[in-house]
């Protein structure tokens, strides 16, 4: 599974990455997590507000940090 965290790297983006890593760990998923801070990498996906979570190329959420349980749902478990 390819998971992307999109955002410039400030507090909420880091929080989203932290929650996502925890979800991956608790679910025992084999996943690669990539944090994209590049402006073009963000906007090329149509993301207008950050942070955003992208799972296997699908944007799951933008503009907020979901809860751990929400992230688990986004990861399909």
């Amino acid at each position: 599974m390819m998971i992307e965290i999109l955002g410039p790297g400030c507090f909420k983006c880091q929080k989203l990455e932290e929650v996502t890593k925890q979800a991956v760990s608790e679910l025992g998923i084999d996943a690669f997590i990539n944090h994209i801070t590049d402006y073009n990498g963000i906007t090329n996906r149509g993301i207008m507000i950050t942070p955003a979570l992208v799972v296997d190329g699908v944007v799951k959420v933008a503009g907020k940090v979901p809860s751990l349980e929400e992230v688990k749902i986004f990861l399909g478990k």
Binding site: R45, G46, I47, M48, V58, V59, A62
Partner: peptide, 8 residues
């Protein structure tokens, strides 16, 4: 999806 989720 990026635009839809950004709106939401």
């Amino acid at each position: 999806p990026g635009f839809v989720q950004s709106a939401k």
